[in-house]
Write a protein that binds this DNA or RNA. Structure first.
Length: 297
RNA sequence: GCGCCGGUCGGAUAGCGGCUAUUCCAGGGGACUGUAAAUCCCCGGCCUUCGGGCAUCGUUGGUUCGAGUCCAACCCGGCGCA
């Protein structure tokens, strides 16, 4: 990485200077995008989205993607980089995000990662090393017809170690594990290669009652903005019904009520993920006005 | 008033004589090795020294070794007939 940069970009860590990367994460509907833009303006930053669905072209309204207007001139990366008809994966995300960070730093600016997909954020900030085994659609198709029990028995024969700690009832995981074993002989032990950056993680959350209201408002706006039209458009462009389901509840025959309740549930799952990361500094987003960037930078 | 049907965990639902009363949804907690807004697990009446203990299927009584399940009466709701 490169040449040292003037102060806000650098942090002192164990006597060494590593480039600073700001991470804005947290629950849906807490105003992450907004805060990220504000910070970007202050620190001369560029934003890298960390959202598993905003990577797709054409998924705008349902994913709550930031509009060009809202970007206020701040460059955004990793939005619209994938074709919705094809599957995008964490691994691809990781590669793109890492090179985006390097690129931004090379130009003397601060990368700001912003998003709510915990798995994607960990992929970059913790440097999870994924086995070099691309998805194998043919194999998956065969395996998906089997029961979890059958898959687990298969895995037990192929790789005892992985079978021991895998969730024996989770078909998605079992299929992936078998896919890796078939390619590599076994599932490599999980490793992490922490990237040479100083990540500052800011977590946004809202108290339950406020979150509920915010979600209701957000979802109503989604429908007003033309969520249904967006879905029609996707269908017209050749995105299958099945594929739409994979994009989550907003894209699977959405109704106002359903999307609101599913979103609230989702925000809880998000917190379950984020709670494990002790490095996150949490911030009540309803008190954002009193937030001083200085305390984090 | 008579007849029929029904009353089971917050809601919906299975159970039609036998040991731990089912499933789904909503609720709470959790997991996460290339699908991650996905996928999956646990909890859910009360008490517990975590071994277990005590309840419970509208109410009361009865039949039975044993009743959510059968019988009777009553209460509540729906439909039909007057």
């Amino acid at each position: 990485m490169n040449t040292p940069h003037p102060s806000p970009l650098l942090a002192k860590e164990r006597g060494k200077f590593s480039p600073r990367v700001i991470v804005v994460l947290g629950q849906t509907a807490t105003g992450k995008s907004n805060l990220a833009v504000k910070i970007a303006k202050k620190v001369n930053g560029e934003i890298i989205s960390a959202d598993s669905r905003q990577v797709y072209k054409g998924l705008d309204i349902g994913t709550g993607k930031i509009t060009p207007n809202e970007m206020k001139g701040v460059p955004h990366h990793l939005l619209d980089v994938a074709n919705p008809k094809k599957k995008f994966t964490v691994s691809e995300y990781q590669k793109l995000a890492i090179s985006a960070m390097a690129d931004i730093l090379k130009r003397g600016k601060t990368p700001i990662i912003c998003g709510g997909t915990g798995f994607y954020i960990d992929a970059i900030t913790k440097g999870v090393v994924f086995p070099e085994v691309p998805p194998n659609p043919k194999l998956r198709k065969v395996l998906e017809n089997k029961t979890a029990e059958q898959l687990f028995k298969m895995l037990e024969k192929l790789d005892k170690a992985r079978a021991k700690n895998i969730d024996a009832k989770n078909k998605v995981r079992l299929v992936r594990a078998i896919e890796i074993v078939k390619a590599l002989g076994k599932v490599p032990k999980i490793t992490e290669a922490t990237p040479p950056y100083d990540f500052v993680k800011i977590g946004l959350y809202l108290p339950t009652d406020k979150l509920q209201k915010k979600v209701e408002k957000r979802v109503k706006q989604m429908f007003q903005a033309g969520l249904l039209k967006e879905i029609k458009k996707l269908k017209k462009s050749g995105v299958s019904e099945k594929r739409l389901q994979e994009f989550g509840f907003e894209y699977d025959k959405p109704t106002l009520e359903k999307v609101i309740s599913e979103t609230v549930k989702y925000t809880k799952r998000q917190m379950t993920w984020f709670k494990r990361d002790k490095e996150i500094k949490w911030l009540d987003s309803s008190k954002i006005k009193t937030f001083s960037y200085a305390s984090f930078l």
